[in-house]
Amino acid sequence: MASESVIEINGLSKSYGSGKKQTLALNALDLTVNRGEIFGYLGPNGAGKTTTIRLLLDLIRPSAGSARIFGLDIRADSVEIHRRIGFLPGELTLWENRTGSQIIHYVASVRGDAKGIAKHADELAERLDLDTSKRVRDLSSGNKRKLGLVAAMMHAPELLILDEPTGGLDPLVQQTFHAMMDEYRDKGKTVFLSSHVLSEVQAICDRVGILRGGELKAVESVEKITNVEFHWVDVTFRDAIPIGLQQQLEGLPSISDVSTNGRRIRLRMLGDFDPLLRVISSGYVEMVHVEEPSLEEIFLAYYSGDKEN
């Protein structure tokens, strides 16, 4: 079940402009998203996340490559694909003079099952604590986002494509959203979610793709990407830190960012523990605390690595 692919992207590229003004927004992207998984698509602004999503939705046309959703071509079969997906744009704009329920009915009528969909929409709105009787122009950005989520999810699509879904949502609604995503996964449905809120991706996603400068840098499971080789290590000595220890540590190629605070020394360690243990054994070690790097740090590590290159 999990190996059945819902999104298959092969060498997808998109460039804007021509000649010297040509900008490559997405470069030969290869990616597969499987049924029943929540896939996090990470990257800073301008990395190409929204470009990927707009290509998948056939809003913009690829310069090269192809993509299939549910085995259907994103260009030739876009209407059939759209019937089976729900989409929330990153910069959501809705028809300002219409009320929430009018927009829900409009979207439902285009989808072709106004009554059935609208009923589910009411349930979603209630769950997200959204008042659909207000005009869009009178809604806060968070409530507009809720309305966008209702419109994207009300037909219970097989695939949800969400661009920065929780921007503007308060923490309580974010929790509800996370629960809804878990339910989606449990039902065997798929979510493709772009975000720069790494903790959110860490909390709900199964796999993560990291994008930078239009290129996919890594695709890993959240567990695996968290299990990178560097760790933060805090060593607390019973007595004062042995003289010259800091210099010794700084001399090790696998150690960096060494700082001291009283009897405690903190450092960033790459690779095996053995070289560190040999050096710190010159003192009486009271406690060693090892921290896994956060996804934010992993994310930054990818970029700093790139900058160095």
């Binding site: 209407v79 019937r83 959501l92 028809w95 966008g148």
Partner: peptide
């Protein structure tokens, strides 16, 4: 930007 929403529907 409402065209993005409209054209993401089956139409």
């Amino acid at each position: 930007g409402t065209m993005d929403v409209l054209l993401s529907l089956p139409i």
